[in-house]
Computed example of a mutant assay.
Amino acid sequence: MAGPRRRQKGDGGISEYRTRSGPRFLIKFAVTREDGTTRVVLTRGFASRREAGAVLRAEIRKAELGEWVEPSKQRLDAYLAEWIQTQRLSPSTRASYLKNIRLHIDPHLGAHRVVRLTGPMIDTWMRTLEADGRADGRGGLSARTVRYVFTILRSALGDAVTQGRLAVNPTDRSTPPTPAQARPPEMQAWTAPELARFLRWADAHDADVAMGWRLLAATGMRRGEALALRWRAVHLVAERIAVRRSVGTVKRKGAGEELVEGPTKTGQSRVVDLDAGTVAALRTYREARARASPDLVRDTALVLSTLDGTHLHPERFSRRFTAQVLRARKAPGEDQVPAIRLHDLRHTHATLLLADGVPVKVVSERLGHASATITLTVYQHVHPGMGRQAADRFAALLAG
């Protein structure tokens, strides 16, 4: 029986070596530079001989076609600083990437050369973040945050592969937290009576800011979309609003923070129909704003704003809602409403509509989801009850 074929000159080679995590493989091959000199290239960290062989063949093929690029000695922190400048990102996303690179990637991996990064090295980094990754020294990061930071690094190193700086993306050989482990906190939603009870309480105690809570609950808008809504996008006669913009907080190291207005999360505008009660509340609210200052109801004015017409701060807006819910829960004579976050008003809107049998596609369009699949995934907990409702409706059809 013939043994394995010996590699010929120019085929390169594969060698096994031992690590604490088990056997790993390296590849070795020679390339001819443009000046005619020869360089022997070593790349380590492959988890299997098959994986090493696939990369070796690809690298030799590049060398034969003249497409092989000599690995850079650039450090990861320098590469990431260069990479982020090439990305088309919204201001808030760019600020988030920069913050996470500064706090969670550079201190741990920044000094390493890009070409020296390995899957086990990235695994060790993620486990460190999970155990002790908080910038304030108070423990580890959540699996959700670690996965988010991992996706930033994965995207950056993926571009390095595309540009020929890396043979393979080392994050392909690492084990980030799974989507299940990185699942967001369980959403909360009020029942229709609970929502109605809170809105009545808010109207009676702070009618001005209560309009914000009603608008979010009645439309399913995101916080930033509501705070960027202008009167020219509110059509009271047609009973609808046009959601076109969003505002968010952008924090920059050494430069404080600023509120930046831009497109919606999906980059798409949408029209959301309003119920008669919300239209009536908007009319009353607009009249009150006009009495305070005609400038507050101009077409270009923000619907929800400070008295001088500027954007409300998104995070303070959320804290104000939390404080009002706490006050409502303590109010004498009021039935208790569960404590929820401001964003849960959006979940409440979707949950109530889906549970009442409104088609998923309609709810998806109101929420501004990129597809109905997202709506189905996020609100799958509502669907079992909808299935029972569908079965009962079918039985009613057969009965007559």
Rank of each mutant, 00 (worst) to 15 (best):
A58L: 11
E59C: 13
I60Y: 02
I60Q: 12
R61L: 10
K62E: 12
K62Q: 14
K62A: 11
A63N: 06
E64G: 11
E64T: 09
E64N: 14
E64I: 06
L65W: 08
L65M: 11
L65P: 00
L65Q: 12
G66F: 11
W68S: 02
V69R: 15
V69Q: 13
V69G: 01
V69M: 04
E70Y: 14
P71N: 03
S72C: 03
Q74L: 13
D77K: 14
D77V: 08
D77R: 15
D77E: 14
A78C: 01
A78G: 01
Y79Q: 06
Y79D: 07
L80N: 05
A81S: 14
A81W: 00
E82V: 01
E82T: 13
E82D: 13
W83I: 02
W83D: 06
W83E: 04
I84R: 05
I84G: 03
I84Y: 01
I84T: 11
I84A: 07
Q85H: 04
T86N: 09
T86H: 05
Q87I: 09
Q87T: 11
Q87M: 12
Q87G: 02
R88N: 08
R88V: 11
R88F: 00
S90H: 08
P91T: 07
P91F: 03
S92A: 14
S92V: 11
R94S: 10
A95G: 09
A95F: 06
S96R: 09
Y97I: 05
K99A: 12
K99G: 01
N100F: 04
L103R: 13
H104T: 06
I105F: 04
I105M: 09
D106I: 13
D106G: 00
P107Y: 10
P107E: 11
H108Q: 10
L109D: 07
G110S: 03
R113W: 01
R113P: 00
R113G: 15
V114A: 04
V114K: 02
R116E: 15
R116F: 00
R116D: 15
L117R: 03
P120V: 11
I122W: 02
I122L: 12
I122Y: 03
D123W: 06
D123I: 10
D123Q: 08
W125M: 03
M126L: 04
T128Q: 13
L129E: 08
L129K: 05
E130V: 03
E130A: 15
E130F: 03
A131L: 13
A131F: 02
D132Y: 00
G133P: 08
A135G: 01
G137L: 10
R138Y: 02
G139M: 09
G140T: 11
R144A: 15
T145N: 05
T145I: 01
Y148P: 00
V149Q: 04
V149S: 07
F150K: 03
T151R: 14
I152C: 02
I152E: 04
I152G: 07
L153D: 03
S155C: 08
G158S: 05
D159T: 12
V161C: 10
V161R: 07
V161W: 06
T162Y: 03
T162I: 12
Q163R: 15
Q163D: 15
G164K: 05
L166N: 07
L166I: 08
A167W: 07
V168S: 13
P170S: 07
T171V: 13
T171A: 12
T171N: 08
D172T: 13
D172Y: 03
R173Y: 14
R173C: 00
R173E: 08
